[in-house]
Write a protein that binds this DNA or RNA. Structure first.
Lengths: 143, 143
DNA sequence: CCCTACATGATACTGAGTCTCGTGAATACG
DNA sequence: CGTATTCACGAGACTCAGTATCATGTAGGG
């Protein structure tokens, strides 16, 4: 796998100490985080790093293909190292649990919509509301 | 078709002059708009309407199923008038147009999710973001 | 018609993200 | 290497969508 340094160079971005630190930290998270979240965590080991630097660096990492920017609820961007999965959900109205649905469920629909309507699809959001398996079983007897 | 008034009542929301005005304005737009955009447009005909009212009213309309909230780029919510029976959309990021997708597209996915995961599905929301046919054609030449 | 709870409008506040600017470091070039 | 140039950094001010507060207005039940 091509290194962060290589990918930054290929994108015409400078390779700096801070960018490598941010990239490493993002990779270490293993989940999507907000820029603010990453900034606060980084300050513990790198107290001199600037907030704007983290925001700008994440943008540079996205440009370089090292990170990906996601829309999160509440007008906040989420960042993930490498290729993220889109987030589709099953939300249980009874116990509040939320399960994730894999991308594979939505791809056929996206393709059909694209070909039927000529739409170019960049992103998709799929949410189901109902009862999870456990609550379905429980409510069958006690509702 | 059930009126805005009825749908607000059904949702336990009060029916006020401002809410009807906002609802009408949103319907008249025929595309997705931001709360700020709608507020500025409304002030021309309703100079006394408050900014917070527009934001709050749009939320009430979403609760009542009169409007839908979509994610837009740049941390801004987009709102679109919506028929209660149609819950799926194609939102064009370029021209802002929103098309509705029939229930038939989602039914097979819902059934597959239900049988794979044991989920009992009551409701579903499916939104695609991208470029509509017209904008796809236009951007193919001039992009 | 009156009462009460909720909506409204004005405005202050919040917080993610951006911009500015002086300083410092990375790359280009000799 | 050494120097020049260009861009990134850090600090903090700024923007602006969205939210909270509070006094006043009004919808809707009695």
């Amino acid at each position: 796998m091509e290194s962060t340094t290589d990918r930054l160079r290929d994108a015409g971005e400078r390779v700096t100490r801070q960018r490598l630190i941010v990239s490493d930290a993002l990779t270490a998270m293993g989940r999507q985080v907000t820029a603010q979240e990453l900034y606060e965590r980084l300050r513990r080991s790198e107290p001199r790093i600037g907030r704007a630097t983290v925001f700008r660096t994440l943008e540079a990492l996205v440009t370089a293909g090292v990170a990906r920017r996601l829309e999160q609820d509440g007008h906040v961007y989420g960042y993930v190292a490498c290729r993220p999965e889109h987030h589709h959900h099953l939300a249980c109205d009874r116990c509040g649990r939320v399960e994730e649905i894999g991308e594979s469920y939505i791809r056929p629909v996206a393709e059909r919509v694209a070909s039927d309507l000529g739409f170019t699809i960049d992103d998709a959001r799929l949410d189901f509301y109902g009862r999870c398996a456990r609550c379905t079983a429980e409510s069958a007897s006690a509702d």
